[in-house]
């Protein structure tokens, strides 16, 4: 089983990112579940979502304590949340950042998701949309296939800019 924890702020699309990621894994022929942790969420507050991917049906409902991978959609949550908490030794970190970030002991990757969203003019209510470009980055990292990522995005969004943003992230990210 591959377990992923996604850190974001309420309203940034972390829950939708989890849903798209799970749906992409299902399109890849795997089993997947996605669940947000529901507390007293409001826009702007740090939140976490969980995704599990496996070759067999997933029977676990409790929260992910020792993820294989952590995705940070908003680096500013690191001021208030230990995003590496419980991450397995050598686990993967994907951070939304224009510049490389090193996390000692972990396999660190970065993608400029905000920059891509702004370039594609993917902005809703003043906030860049991160949940579709992040799928391109996750595909580049081999978590899901790029075809399944595009298929999932098209099932949820009619605006092709979302697919383009994922393609850009896939193309520009250094694997």
């Amino acid at each position: 089983m591959f377990e992923i924890r996604i850190h974001s702020r309420g309203g940034q699309g972390g829950v939708t990112a989890a849903r798209l990621l799970a749906l992409s894994a299902i399109h890849d022929g795997k089993y997947a579940t996605a669940c947000p942790f529901y507390g007293a969420e409001r826009r702007g507050a740090p939140i976490v979502s969980f995704v599990r991917i496996d070759d067999n049906p997933i029977r676990i409902y409790s929260q992910i304590k020792k993820p294989d991978m952590v995705v940070v959609l908003d680096a500013s949550v690191m001021d208030v949340v230990d995003v590496l908490n419980g991450l397995k030794k050598g686990g993967k970190v994907l951070i939304n950042s224009a510049h490389p970030r090193e996390f000692a002991g972990f396999s660190s990757s970065h993608a400029d998701l905000t920059g891509i969203a702004l370039r594609e003019n993917l902005v809703v209510a003043g906030s860049p949309i991160l949940n579709t470009p992040v799928l391109g980055a996750l595909a580049k990292m081999g978590i899901i296939s790029v075809d399944s990522a595009k298929k999932s995005i098209r099932e949820m969004f009619t605006d092709e800019r979302n697919v383009k943003a994922a393609e850009t992230a896939y193309r520009e990210m250094s694997a």
């Binding site: 849903r19 749906l23 299902i26 089993y31 997947a32 996605a34 669940c35 997933i58 409902y61």
Partner: peptide, 9 residues
């Protein structure tokens, strides 16, 4: 939540 809000196939 644990079932009402989890996403599964």
């Amino acid at each position: 939540f644990s079932l009402s809000h989890i996403m599964q196939p």
